[in-house]
Design a binder for these strands. Structure first.
Lengths: 189, 189
DNA sequence: TTGCGCGGAGAACGATCGTTCTCTACTGTA
DNA sequence: TACAGTAGAGAACGATCGTTCTCCGCGCAA
């Protein structure tokens, strides 16, 4: 038997991949068990219900998404470049063969009214991202109202890329972000 | 017995409201039957399956959405104002108590990989909107690349407003659209 | 070696749902 | 009035799924 920590990680990761690829309701707990290689009895010892597992999956994805954005962003030197790096991050993500839109938006659309716990994590993730962009905007010396404008571009790019399959949306969003930055930020941002 | 046309309309409208409010998978055909007041046997005489009903619902919503946007937009006189009217339309929509995001995005998130037919209608709707915006952008004498930037703002506003419940997203999107228009279009657009 | 306790595999249970079927009642016609 | 055809209400069916339970086998203490 693998230790509890490993088993839990395996379950969360297997569920994450399956839920993201097929949707939550389309994935049975038996598929999670098979993919994770952890028996159902143990899964239910770690998570009281499928919904609780979903919440753990979303929390995990929230953390790794924030880490990914931060890593991509920190390679840039100025605040302006750090903002634009977000759109380069999206660009790379859209090209991954497994890309199927934003997991949080998808889950909200699927579960929104049915799972208050899941909806709360989705909201938390969007808040994280909004605050992160707001900090960068502030660092760039731009007015605070620029931040929601930039987040709208990022959110729109994710859904549009998912539905249309058009990976150039990240570049359109980046170009728009540059225009908005030029109009709002001091030249030395 | 109501005539076939009326029965079909009632079924589509009842299913539309239920699917939008609760998600497709969370609504049983029995709930549609009860809300529409049309017996199951007749529903299945009109639609071979729940998926076929969903496609009819999405087609119906696609038409009424296009009509709503066009009506809001046509009240304005210049192409620039017609573009901005789209965001005023969103603003009013976000304030409706039944607002729960874009039905097409929600359905795509829920069904995407599971129903190719539904995904196709969602793509068609997004194409409709993209072409509509492209036409207005062209009318405004602005470069073609402005159109996808504006659609990203509209899509982002819809998902963000749905998740956060913040109805001011339409105004943020509108402000960003004005900046983008100012930067791209000739002053007399 | 002999029990004993825990973990794993998979069956079982109860509920839900999409879809179909049955049975009753009514409408219109001769 | 008698009958044929059809429509409606709801039961029934088969499948799926989340969750729990049973039973078997392995490892360990005396």
């Amino acid at each position: 038997m693998v230790d509890d920590r490993t088993a839990r990680d395996r379950v969360v990761q297997a569920a994450d991949e399956l839920f993201y690829a097929r949707g939550v309701q389309a994935v049975g707990m038996d598929a999670v068990r098979e993919a994770a290689g952890v028996p159902l009895k143990r899964i239910y010892a770690m998570f009281a219900s499928k919904e609780e597992l979903l919440v753990a999956v979303l929390q995990h994805r929230r953390e790794s998404w924030a880490a990914g954005i931060a890593a991509a962003s920190e390679r840039a030197t100025t605040a302006r470049e750090r903002i634009l790096a977000i759109f380069d991050f999206l660009d790379a993500w859209f090209r991954e063969p497994t890309f199927r839109g934003c997991a949080f938006i998808n889950t909200f659309g699927e579960m929104g009214p049915g799972s208050a716990a899941a909806a709360a994590v989705v909201r938390d993730q969007k808040d994280d991202f909004g605050e992160y962009v707001a900090r960068l905007v502030s660092d760039a010396g731009a007015p605070a109202w620029l931040a929601p404008q930039l987040t709208l571009l990022a959110e729109g790019a994710q859904t549009t890329a998912a539905i249309s399959g058009d990976t150039t949306m990240a570049r359109h969003a980046r170009a728009a972000a540059e225009t908005l930055l030029d109009a709002a930020a001091p030249a030395d941002g």
